[in-house]
Amino acid sequence: MFPEFRDLISRLKTQDDHFARLFHRHNELDQQIRNMEAGILPADGLSIENLKKEKLQLKDSLYQILLKASQA
């Protein structure tokens, strides 16, 4: 995710608690969605869709933080 911000992501994960929480939650959702789609965890299509929407909202938030931090 966002390879152009790799160094900034590493820095923000250690310096910005809010960013770190969002990043961690995004990764948790990503793994949960993968497990559901693979049949490892039980799920229906609506549950997966809702998790994907939450993940996308987190990604948008992370991107906005990255843009702001990169311009500082």
Rank of each mutant, 00 (worst) to 15 (best):
I9C: 13
I9L: 12
I9F: 12
S10D: 14
S10R: 15
R11M: 13
R11D: 14
L12H: 08
L12S: 10
L12Q: 09
K13N: 15
K13R: 15
K13S: 15
K13G: 12
D16I: 07
D16R: 05
D16A: 11
D16W: 03
D17A: 14
D17Y: 08
D17H: 03
D17N: 08
H18A: 12
H18Y: 11
H18M: 02
F19N: 06
A20P: 00
R21W: 01
L22G: 01
L22I: 04
F23C: 00
H24D: 15
H24V: 09
R25Q: 13
R25V: 11
R25H: 10
E28Y: 09
E28V: 11
L29T: 05
L29F: 04
L29C: 04
D30N: 10
D30E: 15
D30C: 10
Q31G: 11
Q32L: 11
I33N: 01
N35D: 12
N35Q: 13
M36A: 01
M36Y: 00
M36N: 01
M36V: 00
E37T: 01
A38E: 12
G39C: 05
G39F: 00
G39E: 03
I40C: 09
I40R: 13
I40L: 10
I40P: 01
I40K: 09
L41G: 02
L41Y: 06
L41C: 02
L41D: 12
L41Q: 08
L41M: 11
P42K: 15
P42R: 14
A43L: 04
D44F: 02
G45L: 05
